[in-house]
Each structure stands twice: as C-alpha cells, then as structure tokens.
Design a protein around this nucleic acid. Structure first.
Lengths: 131, 131
DNA sequence: TTTCACGGTATACTTTTGGGTACTATACAC
DNA sequence: GTGTATAGTACCCAAAAGTATACCGTGAAA
C-alpha cells in the first residue's frame, strides 16, 4: 500500500524490517492476514463477521491491496448472490512467523479494557495507559 | 504512534496482531528499534547516521513517540554539546522476536534494486514489482 | 408490481492523520 | 561567524480512512 515507509533507495541495515512492515501497513491488514492464516479460505462476509468494526469499504480496499501485493488471491464465483473467496498465496503464508510473533507479543503485553489499551511491561507492571 | 489501527474497543481474535503493529506504526520506528536492539544504547546522531534518509525532525518525533509508548528511554546528559542516549526498555527489548521475524522475512522476500522494491515469492519467483 | 434481502464492489466526497519543510533555539569552542 | 549536537514551533500538503450512495441478478414477501 501507499502508507509512507522508509524508502528503499538505500539498502541500509534495518531496511528489511521496514520493508516487511510496509506489507502490513493498513488499518486491517494484520487482522485479515491473521484470520486467513487461521482459517485458510474465507469469504468476504466471513472475514467481515470476524472483524466486527471494519466497514465494507475498508475491507474491500485492504483486501485489494493485499491482493496487489501478492499476499492473497481472490477466487470469484459466477453465482448469485456473488461469492468471492480469499486465500493466502505462498508468499502470504510465508508471513506466518511474523504474524505469530506479533500476536504473541500483543497477547502478552497489551490489555484491552473499556476501549483503552494498556501496555504490560515484562515485569507485569502497567507501564503506560495509552488512549 | 497515531497511525490509524484497529481500535481496541472490541477484543476480537486477531486484535493482538493489530495492537502490536500499532506500536510499530511510524515511518522509522521499525528501523530505530532494530538498531537499538543491535547496539544497546545509541545517541541521536548515531541513530541518524545509521538511517541515512531520516530528517532530524522525523527522528526526534518518532523517538519521542517510542518513549511515550514505553519502548525506550532517553538519558539526557548535562553537557555541551547536548548528548542524549537512547536505550530500549525491557518492554522494548521484548519486541526482539517481532523485529527478528520482520527482518528475516524482509531479507528473504524483498529485494531492493534501483530504488524499487521487488518481492520474491517462496518459490524464488518474482511475484511483483512494487514501486 | 414493488420492495427487500442476499453478497460483494464501485464512485464521489469528506475528514483525519502523518510526514515533511523552514526556521528557531540552547551553550560552548574555534 | 560557523560548527557541534539536539530539539522545538509553525505550517503545508499528501495520503489514508471514513461516509454516503449506487450498482449488479435473483428470489421471496408484501
């Protein structure tokens, strides 16, 4: 997607980190990739039900970007009502260690409470309450 | 940082992924974290030299945000010229598996060439040339 | 006949957010 | 005056996200 990330003009150390993050830029991409990793193939509406607060518009948009980046593929069925399946490509599947690391860290260090995000430091100490 | 990410109002599956990504949002944060992980403590200018195309303004800004998120701490020395050291907190250090996963994936799948980014699919096939 | 539901996507427009530029500041040394 | 190292403010604009509305074909219900 087009979210600004470190330009890859220079191939400086740490550049691969930002490159990878560039593939995950976009409000719902991390979650989308997570669900496709967990479930294999999902329809548009199945994804939407798993991500309660995403709008149709944004889900369509992010899915298209992920497709363009080569991380997933769409299978359009010539049926009515319309049916479109989304599956990760081998490239998308190769992101599994990344998504897993992200999920594990988030699960251990971030607590959701009353719409707020609490960060838990490794010492189980609430280091910061971020709105 | 303040880049739009999935709100944590709902604690739906996949939410931890987006939570973690929220800590990495910002043009230079991935690289900054990488360098601090590799080197322990770095001064402002040492960081800047390792990230060739970052501006002072943006580096200051992203460092401040990382500090506010509890991922790093600043040590200000009462000297002239000014000296400020940046070190990861334990929370920041706990991101090591994440940063490593990002770096490994980027190294294997993204090629930088002539200012363009090429994606290499697991089958060593150039799947997409992304500008 | 008309309306609604189904599932998915498009266009037009608005609002929000992030990254960048330009300039300024500090104290000391040369 | 210029350089060192670090960081602040003001402002601009591009990009991302969001809202509203429309579209498609078929079947069912009013």
């Amino acid at each position: 997607m087009s979210k600004p990330r470190a330009k890859l003009t220079d191939n400086f150390p740490g550049c691969p980190v930002e490159s990878t993050l560039g593939f995950l830029d976009g409000k719902w991409k991390g979650v989308i990739l997570y669900h496709l990793l967990e479930n294999g193939t999902l329809r548009f509406n199945e994804l939407r039900r798993r991500i309660p607060s995403v709008t149709q518009r944004m889900l369509t948009k992010q899915l298209r970007e992920l497709e363009e980046a080569g991380l997933l593929e769409r299978t359009v069925f010539a049926v009515v009502p319309p049916r479109v399946d989304y599956t990760l490509t081998p490239l998308g599947l190769s992101l599994e260690p990344v998504i897993t690391a992200l999920r594990v860290w988030g699960k251990e260090h971030v607590i959701c409470r009353d719409g707020k995000k609490f960060v838990v430091a490794p010492e189980e100490q609430v280091a910061l309450e971020a709105a």
